[in-house]
Amino acid sequence: MDPINFVILASILFAIGAAAVLLRRNAIIAFMGVELMLNAANLALVAFSRMHGEIDGQIMAFFVLTVAAAEVVVGLGIIIAVFRARQTISLDEPAELKG
């Protein structure tokens, strides 16, 4: 079976992740959506790596993994900070970005 199918699978996962970000108000769930999108991208990278027979795609996935880990730490830190300040993690609450 062609590894391209994994790329298609990655696209679907990516779309699901995006939908989660758009639709869920719980910050943690939305954040998990982001993680899913990142992992979808990783999957595509690994699939490409397989298709090209080169290891570089995997290495990229590694990097993404690392950065994602860093991102999770900071992101969750932010969520906690927001929760402390407002006692909620609903994304609709912090509307201070309002122009």
Binding site: D2, P3, I4, V7, I8, S11, I12, F14, A15, I16, A18, A19, L22, S49, R50, M51, H52, G53, E54, I55, G57, Q58
Partner: peptide
């Protein structure tokens, strides 16, 4: 989101990428 997924899938489904014989 659905549009995004649909587009991605349709585009990727259309292209044919060469598959290397060697395994990484």
């Amino acid at each position: 989101a659905a549009g995004l997924g649909a587009f991605l899938v349709s585009i990727i489904g259309r292209v044919t990428l060469p598959t290397a014989d060697t395994m990484p």
